[in-house]
Simulated assay, not measured.
Amino acid sequence: MLCRFVGYGQPIFDQIFGHVQNPNECIFVLDSLEDVTSCRNKLFETFGINRAIVTTKDQLKSEIFFKEKPIIEGDFRLVSFFKSLTNENKSRFGIKNIFDCIEFGKLFFNLYEELIEERKIKEDNLYEWQKEIFKQLENVKNDYKEYVIQNNLEDRIFVYNPARVDLTKFKQVKKVIFVNTLYFSRLEKHIIDSFSSIDTDIELFLQMDPEDFDLKNLRMKKVTIPNTKIDVKIRECSDNCVQSLSLLKDMKGLDKATIIDSRNDQNSYLSGTVSNKKDFFSNTMFFSFLSDLYNLV
């Protein structure tokens, strides 16, 4: 994997597309649907196309693993899980009806979805009572798997298996580009190795200090705040007119300024008056940083 670091003040998509010759031969992998939309818009603006594969890690994984039957999702998944429970397990976990099963099912699937990502559990670190509960959960999982098979269905906790990686539909892909991915699970590392085995280049673009990322384990190890002096002024105004007058006063004599509006609307109170950049808080790199940090935690 080739890792490229981008400065905090540099437009990251401009840096990425500077290393791309044919977007149609690439997969762009981002962390959120909002970033996917931004990437697609920038692709169209830069190359005049929007047929490139732009996706999130979760969407990519849903396409990579071989499956012969429909994947069970949503409420149908919960109902199927409830039906697969034996009377003994219902009694053991205090489940009398499907409503009692909602929280238990959520915890069950969260646990096994995490386990398939990391592909291991260290039983040596568990207490005896924890080992016993895990043994009981394994029995629940086996019963659920049998029910799913009998009904000609699939569930991602069984499908997301390294042995079922299928890259047939991605044979024409020459490069996979991950954007600001701060952590890779064991399963995701296996996917990267699988792409590499068919001579697909893997690149990771990170907008952070190179010392903050562990290249060996592919994960963020610390956060370094940029040593940049920025004059920040915060204004709270009663209406658009007062806000416009305040901004005109604040920007007197300034050649350039960025106006960050907390409201996600298309308010044009500065139209024709100020030629500086207007942005929303949700579009800023600081907001993206906070979002990534929140997702990691």
Results as ranks from 00 to 15, higher is better:
C3D: 04
D14L: 01
I16P: 05
F17G: 00
Q21Y: 07
Q21R: 12
P23K: 08
F28G: 11
V29W: 04
D31W: 13
T37K: 09
S38T: 11
N41I: 12
L43N: 03
F44K: 12
F47G: 07
I53M: 13
V54E: 06
T56M: 02
K57R: 08
F65M: 07
F66E: 12
E68I: 03
I72A: 02
D75E: 13
R77I: 02
L78H: 10
S80F: 10
S80N: 14
T86V: 04
K90T: 10
N97Q: 01
C101N: 07
F108D: 03
N110T: 03
Y112M: 00
E113P: 01
I116G: 03
E117V: 08
I121H: 12
I121G: 07
K122C: 05
D124Q: 11
L126M: 15
W129F: 13
Q136W: 03
E138S: 13
V148I: 15
N152S: 13
D155R: 09
R156W: 01
I157G: 04
F158L: 03
P162A: 00
V165T: 03
V173I: 15
F178C: 07
L182P: 11
R186E: 10
R186T: 14
H190C: 01
S197L: 01
I198D: 05
L206N: 05
Q207H: 07
M208Q: 14
D214R: 14
N217H: 12
R219D: 10
I230N: 08
I230D: 04
K233E: 00
I234Q: 05
S244I: 08
T258V: 11
D261E: 07
N267R: 15
F281T: 13
S282E: 11
T284V: 11
S288I: 11
L290S: 15
D292A: 15
N295A: 14
